[in-house]
């Protein structure tokens, strides 16, 4: 009897670790950084964590979560976002169009990229990994030719720049609030709608999903279009932040976004991609980066730390899954 009771307690412990282990580590880290560095837990540092990089990473990671839920990869989102940013900047500065024309053009291009990815992967039954890698290479090549690898700067339309300026609310960037809306939207999509349930079913067993009357191909295509549209949004925010487009602007976010989403599978719903987990993953990686920077460590060590954490988190997730 006591044996059974201790088993139950152990199972509960395992379940708790599975769902909230990463959160505990996160809390511990914040305390560590705060005690070890006098200027970590200050309004300025918090703002740094939030204002720089986090919005594009969160928005990318949301799109990525949607496709990964269905078992597909998308490696082209950074390129799509970069091209969108370049398109807007080029339209305004080089061709003297209204910024809205640039945004519309970027959106059309982005949606086309999503449809082509989705069509080739879902309807032509090709590997999403290969197709989106190819798409990414293709888009970068196109951007290289078009931009001649030059930075475009000098957008001055105040309304456009206000899309991602520092807002009056706690001096937080507008983009962060937009990212928040994207998070809520993705959460509603995946966790609250029939579409979301179907998407998880497609990821779990596409054939059973199809035989349950779900249009699997269309759903997968929608996933790629969602990623593409969100990537364009990142592009828009990127240009609006500084009025500038840099070639391959979002390359550096491709792998961190993946890391965050996979890290997220170790929180809330163990072993499953989920919106809450992705958010924690993003914040966690960002906090570590800022925290280690505040200790004066250079980026090489930050990369090493983040890599190790990802491996450990995934291992922990697996371990917990096999125990329960």
């Amino acid at each position: 009897m006591s044996n059974a009771a201790s088993t139950t307690i152990r199972n509960r412990g395992v379940a708790f670790t599975a769902q909230f282990g990463l959160l505990v580590v996160f809390g511990f880290l914040i305390i560590l950084f705060t005690t070890q560095s006098s200027f970590f837990f200050t309004a300025d540092t918090l703002r740094t964590i939030i204002n720089i990089e986090i919005a594009p990473m969160l928005i990318f990671a949301m799109g990525l979560t949607v496709v990964l839920v269905m078992g597909d990869f998308d490696l082209s989102f950074a390129a799509t976002g970069g091209l969108a940013a370049y398109t807007i900047a080029a339209m305004v500065i080089n061709h003297n169009f209204h910024w809205a024309i640039g945004v519309i053009l970027a959106l059309i291009t982005g949606i086309a990229v999503g449809i082509i990815n989705g069509y080739l992967v879902a309807y032509r039954n090709t590997s999403s990994f290969v197709i989106t890698l190819a798409m990414s290479t293709l888009l970068f090549g196109f951007e290289q030719i078009w931009s001649d690898q030059k930075v475009i700067q000098g957008i001055e339309n105040q309304f456009f720049l206000n899309l991602n300026s520092i807002s009056g609310l706690w001096n937080i960037r507008v983009g962060v609030f937009i990212a928040f809306l994207v998070i809520v939207g993705t959460w509603i999509l995946l966790d609250k709608t029939e579409l979301g349930r179907f998407m998880y079913a497609v990821g779990g067993n596409p054939e059973a999903a199809r035989l349950a009357g779900i249009n699997v191909k269309r759903l997968r295509l929608i996933g790629f279009v969602v990623v593409a549209i969100l990537s364009v949004l990142v592009g828009i925010l990127g240009v609006a932040q500084s009025g500038t487009s840099i070639p391959r602007q979002f390359d550096g976010l491709l792998l961190p976004a993946y890391a965050a989403v996979f890290l997220g599978t170790s929180v809330f719903k163990p072993g499953k991609f989920n919106v809450g987990g992705t958010v924690i993953g993003c914040l966690f990686l960002r906090t570590i980066k800022v925290g280690l920077l505040s200790w004066g460590l250079d980026t090489a060590w930050i990369n090493i730390t983040q890599g190790l954490i990802l491996v450990l988190a995934v291992l922990l997730g697996k371990l917990v899954q096999s125990k329960s």
């Binding site: 029939e194 349930r197 998880y200 079913a201 779990g204 067993n205 054939e207 059973a208 035989l211 009357g213």
Partner: peptide, 20 residues
């Protein structure tokens, strides 16, 4: 392979074709 989504629980499997 054709009838069940193995990482879904009982409820999610039962209601999959009748969510509407």
């Amino acid at each position: 392979h054709q009838g069940l989504v193995m990482n879904f629980d009982l409820r999610e499997n039962i209601t999959l074709p009748s969510l509407d």
